[in-house]
Amino acid sequence: MLIGYARTSTIAQRAGLEAQERDLAAVGCERIFVEQVSSVDVVKREKLTEALAFARQGDTLVITKLDRLARSVAHLVALLGQLEAKGVSLRILGMGIDTGTPTGKLMLNILGGVAEFEREIMLERQREGIAKAKADGKYKGRAPTARAKADDVVKLHRDGIGGSEIAKRLGIGRASVYRILGEVQEDAGAGK
């Protein structure tokens, strides 16, 4: 049995999800598991867990692209181990890879390693760029949005507005509102 798995990170990527579902149906997937969740949040990928539990010996899990399934080589290896233990192969449509063959297994491991290598190089360059910008005095980091609105938080609080409503009106988190109010109280207590 061909079992499809489709995933996008956000609801805004609906067209991409529909394209994956269409491609999986076109190759004959009898059951397709679909979810919209970040690949980083491996714990919450319930539909992937369901797909893996549903698969039986001789089945093939089909995905459109490798990044829809695994974020890292370690995660990929773990998933492949689960599939292999159940006698289930993996087919990646966009790469023409099927782990039901020795060549498919080899290619997947090589490509997964290259993808992780590229990501590490990109992150290293990003860190180097940030370090250079800091050294040149050009990198300040993200501006603290809540702190910039501290005066507004205090004014609204004095007007009798509750913390949740203040957060909503100013577009900041509730925790930030209470942190600011706590700091204002500490400053007032220290000034006595």
Rank of each mutant, 00 (worst) to 15 (best):
S164Q: 13
L156H: 02
G163Y: 14
V177S: 03
Q126D: 09
L170T: 04
A150S: 14
K168S: 13
G171D: 07
A150G: 06
S176V: 02
A148C: 06
E165P: 00
R125A: 00
A146I: 10
A133Q: 12
R158L: 13
Y139R: 11
Q126F: 09
E183V: 06
A148Y: 10
K149M: 04
R158Y: 06
Q126V: 12
A135V: 13
A143S: 06
G141P: 03
L181H: 03
S176H: 01
E183A: 05
A143G: 03
G141L: 00
A150F: 06
T145R: 14
I161Q: 04
E183M: 07
A148R: 15
S164D: 15
K132H: 12
E165D: 09
A146N: 08
V154C: 00
L181E: 10
G171W: 00
R125C: 03
H157P: 04
E128S: 08
L156A: 07
D152R: 13
K138R: 15
I172Y: 00
K132W: 15
R147W: 13
V154E: 04
R179L: 07
A146C: 07
V177F: 03
R158A: 10
R169F: 02
P144H: 14
Y178F: 11
G162C: 03
K132M: 14
A143Q: 09
G173R: 12
D159V: 10
L156V: 04
I180H: 02
L181S: 06
H157W: 15
Q126S: 09
G163R: 14
A133G: 09
